[in-house]
Amino acid sequence: MEPTQLESKQHLTTRRGFIAAFGFGGVALYGAWAAYGASPLPFTHASGGHAAHGTAPAKAPAGHSGHGADPLMTPDEFLRRHEAFLARFRTPDGRVVVPAAAAPEDAHADHGAPQPHATHGTPTPPPAQSHAEHAPQPADGEPLDIYLHAFRFGFTPDEMHLRAGQPYRFRMLASDVSHGASLQLGHASRIVRLRANVVSEQTITFHRPGRVLVYCTVFCGPAHDAMSGRIVVA
């Protein structure tokens, strides 16, 4: 025999409908999402009333929302472009300096680029001088391409010099196992996860000068702790 149930004349707070309704309490969080323009339903995006709250945390510049924006890039293609990127922007002291005014990388990548190879962290001999200063201007607001290669246990380039206010399209590849390429931005971070042999892409604009720690946030092996790099934003 089960314990006796309470009598049928119940208080509102013990009625099934009341309890079920409160059980959906968590759904009310949708309001907070909507207030920050992060609500998934279309009508809230269409309202246009979010400007007062600022843009959504990951609002894309027009035409660069990530998925499907570019044709398929294989890891080999990435490595080829990565080598061209290094060859173009590496300075004699080993840093990679990408100024705000740089030519679209394809103009250089398509000719004279080093041959792709699968080894990690083998730096190409630095060019006698960076081409960047003489490069033609890109279109206004157009992101510049950055190629970041993650491998056990480092990044190439491991130090990049970028400009505040300039959008950069980070193309990233973890070429052996999964890695992270997260950005420590002082009081908080932006976490980036990379899966092995998948080229990922994010368009990133730094708004303030400073040093940004790039660190691996996906466990990748014994020297995971040591896997870091830096971006200097001028």
């Binding site: 843009t55 990951a58 609002k59 894309a60 510049p61 660069h64 929302s65 990530g66 998925h67 499907g68 924006a69 570019d70 959008p167 950005l183 931005l185 002082g186 932006r190 899966r195 998948v198 080229v199 990922s200 892409e201 994010q202 368009t203 990133i204 604009t205 730094f206 708004h207 303030r208 400073g210």
Partner: peptide, 9 residues
């Protein structure tokens, strides 16, 4: 101090 978009792959 950063704006980021896309998690594309």
């Amino acid at each position: 101090p950063v704006t980021a978009a896309g998690g594309g792959a």
